[in-house]
Design a protein around this nucleic acid. Structure first.
Length: 607
RNA sequence: GCCGUCCUAGCUCAAUGGCAGAGCAAUAGUUUUGUAAACUAUAGGUUCUCGGUUCAAGUCCGAGGGACGGCUCCA
């Protein structure tokens, strides 16, 4: 038997599903059906909405079709002929795709989904098709516009499972009709499918929303508002540890701490351009006149910190000798995210950025970018993120500033990446309205990528806010501004961190590091004494004097994933040795002095 | 915002249209415990909200809110 790549198997399974749907719903109109990670999907326009029961029916129909051992038949035909064919089949979406191919030599989807493997999308693919001809594939009664390749017959398919129904806009545009998308998993063997399901189960176990509850880190409360995080004591201490660490790093590396308010007059955001470009992501304006007629100004809760830092810069005349100037702040910003996009800690409406703005001369720009990229990688390593992907995002469709500025800023970012010999991908038109950027996506312990660090070059805000410095010849010059956040949003970063470590934080990040419980009443004073001693060494200690059995108290501490659990009884009081239960469920005997040395050393290691 | 699913005690979940319940957590008492669940009791509810149908609504219908899975978006 021939071996086919999983892309081919997935794509062929997608066709099989479409064929099954055609049998069950003869009126169906097909959208596209590409390969995705671990499987495939196909978009359909159907009379009625599908239910989970329908998935079972479709799966069964697919199995029936497999038994017929149908062939995947390929044909190359003229575009005109294909258009006629799909007209006859009453498939308007396919005709739309054909029109694209005629115009561009490929579909817009294939340009958009550049991550999908070339043989992956139905009627799509990386390379342009030959001008006048397209290939079609037929499986039973189902005919599809498709580059292929496919398996030869249904007997060569692997295992599959339909797992999700969702709405999806035709061509990904919210102005278009919403189609129904059926997602499926497909693998060459049952073993691979099982392996994937196991990883998925693991991902569910480490879901930060679930762990956040189990470890009592935070809540999101309907009465407070969606997308707004309430940090409980254990979560707040974790946040503080991260904030302290990151601010120390910044101030030790040439940044100056500033602090700015959560509100500002609306005019500020008009000057910055945010009011024009991001109005729909800003909270509504506060009209102060509603409070008091004398107050004429409108106010706005801040969606970002930059204009404040610019105001601090502009407060006094700056010399070229002052530059580069780096202002940092843990700035809490509020952005109005649409209700459907909110997600735990990773997509919220109020969050704290480890923000900074670097103001420099053109000559200093390359070096500042380079230093910042290196710095970001170093910081991320401290948190246990070793793998990352880097993206260079270029000028978006809607932007401000001259073309020359854009070219210059993009070039600067490109040069730095090349100089650092870092591999990167270009995210075309993925930049911010005021400038291009470098994004770092970190990979967590189970291989998922998360965007955190962002480094943006901006010539435009300095212009809008009339920023200057005096050069060595006494002439006024305009500084260049770099916006950068290395962790991004603290909330988001903490969500990623929770999933990365599955709640089992390294010692330096653990909200509680040592858990102490006496065996009986007689040992309470010994526990109190030890707790005080450990706290004085800077350790985070929790004691439990509750009327509970030892086993129960250990169980509770284990569930909270506390690194060291110490039970104090006669043995410990007499011998001055401690019995320490670690997170791998081992009990280690050690002197108090040695234990303190060990744990303090473990905390130091991160640096 | 759009498509779909869901919403009952702090958490996880029960309850043919017919008295709103269990386990865990919480609180109190008893027990003073040696490394993942002692015992007993108590308390805990506008069944997301509003409206409708019905003798009777957690359950059926309508509107709204929120969560979840996607889509779009993510400065």
């Amino acid at each position: 038997m021939k071996n086919f790549s999983s892309e081919i198997i997935r794509h062929s399974t997608s066709h099989l599903m479409a064929a099954a749907i055609l049998e069950l719903f003869p009126q169906v109109k097909f959208g596209i059906g590409p390969v995705i990670e671990n499987g495939f999907y196909y978009d359909f326009d159907l009379e009625r909405t599908l239910t989970p029961q329908d998935l079972i029916k479709i799966e069964n129909k697919m199995k029936q079709l497999i038994k017929k051992n149908l062939k995947f038949e390929k044909k190359e035909i003229e575009i005109d002929e294909a258009t006629e064919l799909f007209k006859k089949l009453n498939q308007p979406y396919k005709i739309e795709l054909l029109q694209d191919i005629e115009k561009y030599g490929t579909t817009q989807e294939s340009l958009k989904h550049k991550n999908i493997p070339a043989e992956g999308g139905s009627a799509s693919g990386g390379k342009a098709l030959k001008q006048n001809k397209v290939t079609i594939y037929q499986l039973g009664n189902f005919i599809d516009l498709c580059r292929g390749p496919h398996v030869e017959n249904t007997g060569q398919l692997g295992v599959f499972k339909l797992n999700k129904i969702a709405g999806a806009y035709w061509r990904g545009d919210e102005k278009n009709k919403m189609l129904q998308r059926v997602y499926g998993l497909a693998f060459a063997s049952q073993k691979e499918l099982d392996g994937f399901l196991k990883i998925q189960e693991e991902a569910e176990k480490r879901d930060h929303r679930k762990l956040g509850q189990e470890l009592d880190l935070f809540q999101i409360n309907d009465n407070i508002g969606p997308g707004l995080i309430l940090w409980h004591p254990r979560g707040a201490i974790l946040k503080k540890i991260i904030e302290n660490y990151i601010l120390d790093e910044y101030t030790n590396n040439g940044y100056q701490l500033v602090s700015t308010p959560h509100l500002a007059k609306l005019n500020l955001w008009k000057t910055s351009g945010h009011n024009d470009f991001y109005r729909e992501n800003m909270f509504p304006v506060m009209h102060m006149s509603e409070m008091n007629k004398e107050e004429k100004d409108d106010y706005q809760v801040k969606p970002m910190n930059c204009p404040f830092h610019i105001a601090i810069y502009n407060h006094s005349l700056k010399s070229y000798r002052d530059l580069p100037l780096r202002y940092t702040e843990l700035g809490t910003v509020y952005r109005y995210e649409k209700s459907g996009v909110l997600h735990g800690l990773t997509r919220v409406r109020g969050f704290t950025q480890d923000d900074a703005h670097i103001f420099c001369t053109p000559e200093q720009l390359d070096k500042e970018i380079e230093t910042t990229v290196k710095f970001a990688v170093k910081i991320l390593k401290t948190f246990g993120f070793k793998g990352y992907d880097i993206y260079l995002s270029t000028q978006p469709e809607k932007s401000v500033g001259s073309q020359e500025n854009w070219n210059q800023a993009t070039k600067a970012l490109e040069n730095s990446l090349k100089k650092l010999k870092i591999k990167y991908e270009v995210d075309a038109a993925g930049g911010v309205f005021y400038g291009p950027k470098i994004d770092i996506k970190i990979k967590d312990s189970i291989g998922r990528a998360w965007q955190c660090s962002t480094i943006q070059v901006d010539f435009n805000l300095p212009e809008k806010f009339a920023m200057t410095y005096t050069d060595s010849e006494g002439k006024k010059q305009q500084p260049i501004m770099i916006h950068r956040a290395l962790l991004g949003s603290l909330e988001r970063f903490m969500g990623v961190l929770i999933e990365h470590y599955a709640g089992v934080f390294p010692i330096w990040l653990s909200p509680v590091q040592v858990y102490l419980t006496p065996v009986g009443k007689a040992h309470q004073s010994a526990v109190k004494k030890l707790a005080k001693e450990l706290s004085e060494k800077g350790l985070r200690v929790e004691t439990n004097f509750l009327n509970e059995t030892i086993s129960y108290k250990v169980r509770k501490a284990e569930k909270m994933k506390i690194p060291y659990i110490l039970v104090i009884g006669d043995k410990e009081v007499k011998s001055h040795n401690l019995n320490i239960r670690t997170r791998d469920n081992k009990i280690v005997k050690m002197s108090k002095k040695k234990f303190i040395e060990k744990i303090l050393k473990e905390i130091e290691i991160k640096k």
